[in-house]
Nucleic acid binder design. Structure first.
Length: 103
DNA sequence: CGGTTGACCAAGT
DNA sequence: GACTTGGCCAACC
């Protein structure tokens, strides 16, 4: 254990419902600059459904992608109270979770 | 074990 | 504002 992937997943599980985070926020939180490692770790997502990867979006507010399909990701986020517009999270910065309560 | 790829980001051109 | 380059980590071939 003790890998970037595990920490990444651990943080994702701490994301409250109705909130989203960015790959950058996770990477910075983990103390690394490898945003790609996070994207890869979450992207490959070996821990589904252990990790709610649908709450992770890129810094542009776009959903990026989803192992089950972006359409599913949109549906999940909408079910959590978020609004998705044109494949992007509406007011995502307002609902952005920066793990300020952790560490 | 080395090179490529990937749901990325930021800065430079 | 669009495209290119460099950089990082982990998994796959």
């Amino acid at each position: 254990m003790s890998g970037l992937t595990q920490d990444c997943h651990n943080l994702l599980k701490h994301i409250p419902k109705g909130k989203v985070t960015t790959y950058k926020a996770v990477a910075e939180m983990l103390g690394t600059k490898a945003y790609r490692a996070v994207g890869n770790a979450v992207g490959k997502n070996r821990d589904i459904p252990n990790v709610p990867c649908h709450r992770v979006v890129n810094t542009s507010g776009k959903l990026g992608g989803y192992a089950f399909g972006v359409d599913k990701k949109v549906d999940l986020l909408r079910s959590e109270g978020l609004q998705i517009e044109n494949g992007k999270v509406a007011d995502f910065q307002d609902n952005l979770y920066l793990f300020e309560d952790i560490k």
